[in-house]
Design a protein around this nucleic acid. Structure first.
Length: 574
RNA sequence: CGGGGUGUGGCGCAGCGGUAGCGCACUCGCUUUGGGAGCGAGGGGUCACAGGUUCAAAUCCUGUCACCCCGACCA
């Protein structure tokens, strides 16, 4: 049975739906505004929403697309618990390190339980208990399940919430080649899903964050209201989340090295102040910042024409939290805020961005003394051992690795996929006997789509003039049937007849059979903006015609009854 | 977690020392009827909560909570 038939047609007089004339206060994004105005959602708490019938229909249609695409590609649906014992998360070593922190509570026997923010642990446990041999592999499981994440700041309606439905999938393979195949298969499935939702997404390199694993890609819909910053090279060969993006750093000819010397820099604490005071270019200076990475104090140094990428730093240090160290902490390490340098500092670990070795050298760095800076710092000469890596943030205008200019965009992350490898299977004993009879860890991948966020993103992308304009595939109903002068017998009978006939054909109609103002009906119809609107009225009946408005072509045509039925049989697929 | 803002009928707001009002929505009646109608009559609020000041508190003070925005953080 098609989803349209399953959800069925509805008459407004016996449906639960209400639109709003006014916006709630402090609405930030169009999708949030429209989701509220059209009676899709109702807020229960910060980042926690109820779906009203109208909104839930769209969600059901999205989930149906996901199921169809996944089932037809050989994936298998399961269901995992939302409430899980916290011991399970001890095994994966994420009980205290997951960001945002897990939501915990005690049951009656004083066992600690958590509300799952994601399901790697549960699925790995299940698979570990039920897979023994390489013959049992490979397979990919999926579910559509509620997640709860104690997000520090939910916002923008459904774009960023605490409780949400996610379609999460997990692949299990015997080797890297298998994992590659599963990963690529999932990319194909995701592309199909987003295409069917008429959402244009791009695939970008991404950081794997709290989920872990090596390779990771995000599916991003470009939109100004998005929270993620994406860098795309002009030649389109490179696209990455700013958290992950790499770029080709500028090299400068090395100067003849000079000895370290002090400079008087009274009260010049920032790079900008120094730049003006000394009339020199940013590339001639180094920036030193002290971070607190969990409990460790770490210094980071970069050439001043670049900025730090804190994700790269956090990943390298394998830290859960990374924050700028307070002045108090800096002073306790005998450093002078505003004049920090790594020179002769033994009690702190320093990380250097590799730009520090790319010239021009003889850098100006802090003097570790108030109102002093050093001139003539060269890492390779003035330090014996150092950790050097890429901790720079890519920005618009930088050059991609294939020599193309990077451009910056904002986007909404609607899907994220990860190659987990054996991160979880190793810790949780998910292994199998290989052909030689030896134990081997299962290689995993995990894949997620935020269902509600996808709906919101789709609205962001399609909305205009106070209308949602959801595509036919996920529009709550396919057709808005309006009967004007519903009290008129002829109108009523014709409308009912069409309602029944089109419903029998498999279409899902919203029949506005309310005895209210015409203007209200049209406004509700515009707001909801279903793909097709049909008007039955006295006037039309007199002309022996039925009015059909097609949103996509923005055209209205008048047809006879028989033409109408033919039109729907041939132009639309229920 | 830091900074800021807002809590008054279902929604949007006014009132800012004398015990609550407007618009929309809702109910009833009449009129109207192809773009959020008109007239009339109604119903609905311990003014977020808790203390305090005062003869008197929605209004002033203190605390708490909730929600929103910016930042931090973040699948």
């Amino acid at each position: 049975m098609s989803i349209n038939k399953l959800l069925g047609s509805k008459k407004l007089t016996s449906y639960f739906w209400k639109t709003y004339r006014e916006d709630p206060q402090n609405i930030e994004t169009e999708s949030h505004r429209l989701l509220h105005r059209t009676g899709f959602i109702s807020q229960l708490s910060t980042g926690i929403f109820s779906f009203l019938p109208m909104g839930w229909r769209s969600i059901e249609k999205i989930k149906n697309i996901i199921r169809e695409e996944m089932n037809s590609s050989g994936l298998i649906e399961i269901n995992l618990p939302v409430i899980q014992p916290s011991d399970l998360w001890k095994t994966s070593e994420r009980l205290d390190t997951f960001i945002p922190p897990l939501s915990k509570f005690q049951d009656r026997r004083d066992n600690q339980l958590i509300i799952a923010p994601t399901h790697e642990e549960a699925v790995t446990d299940m698979v570990a208990k039920n897979v023994n041999s390489y013959r049992d592999l490979p397979f990919t499981l999926y579910q559509i399940q509620t997640k709860y994440r104690e997000d520090p700041r939910p916002r923008a309606g459904l774009l960023r919430v605490r409780e949400f439905e996610m379609n999460d999938a997990y692949s299990f393979d015997v080797d890297e080649e298998g994992l590659d195949l599963s990963y690529k298969n999932m990319i194909k499935i995701y592309k199909n899903i987003f295409m069917r939702c008429s959402t244009e997404v791009i695939i970008v390199d991404a950081d794997s964050g709290a989920i872990g694993g090596k390779e990771s890609n995000e599916f991003v819909m470009l939109a100004d209201s998005g929270e993620d910053v994406i860098l795309i090279s002009k030649d389109k060969l490179y696209a990455a989340n700013v958290e992950k993006a790499i770029f080709k750093k500028e090299k400068f000819e090395k100067e003849n090295t000079i000895n370290l010397q002090y400079l008087d820099t009274p009260n010049k604490k920032t790079i900008d102040e120094l730049k003006d005071f000394l009339s020199i270019d940013n590339k001639k200076m180094l920036k030193t910042v002290i971070y607190k990475a969990d409990d460790e104090i770490v210094g980071c140094v970069i050439r001043s024409d670049y900025n730090f990428n804190e994700t790269k730093i956090r990943n390298y240090l394998n830290a859960t939290n990374l924050n700028l160290a307070s002045d108090k902490v800096i002073i306790s390490k005998d450093l002078v805020p505003g004049f920090i340098s790594p020179i002769n500092i033994e009690n702190i670990r320093f990380l250097y961005d590799d730009s520090v070795l790319l010239g021009p050298g003889n850098f100006i760095v802090g003097g570790n003394t108030k109102d002093k800076h050093y001139k003539g710092f060269n890492l390779d000469q003035d330090s014996i051992s150092y950790e050097i890596l890429d901790i720079a943030e890519a920005e618009e205008g930088h050059i991609s690795i294939n020599e193309s200019i990077l451009e910056s965009f904002r986007g909404i992350e609607v899907g994220h996929i990860f190659k987990l490898g054996d991160v979880y299977s190793k810790k949780m004993g998910a292994n199998f006997s290989n052909k030689e009879g030896k134990n081997q860890n299962i290689l995993m991948g995990c894949y997620g789509i935020g269902v509600g966020r996808l709906l919101a993103a789709c609205i962001e992308a399609n909305q205009k003039n106070n209308s949602m304009n959801l595509p036919l595939s996920i529009s709550p109903f396919s057709i808005y049937l309006v009967a004007l002068q519903i009290k008129d017998e002829k109108v009523k009978n014709l409308a009912e007849k069409i309602y029944k006939e089109l419903t029998d054909l498999g279409f899902d109609l919203l029949f506005d059979d309310r005895d209210i103002q015409t203007g209200v009906k049209f406004n509700d119809s515009d707001l909801l903006s279903l793909p097709v609107r049909r008007v039955i009225s006295k006037r039309n009946i007199q002309n022996d015609s039925i009015e059909v408005f097609e949103r996509d072509t923005d055209s209205t045509i008048s047809l006879t009854y028989d033409e109408t039925i033919t039109y729907f049989k041939t132009n639309l697929i229920p």
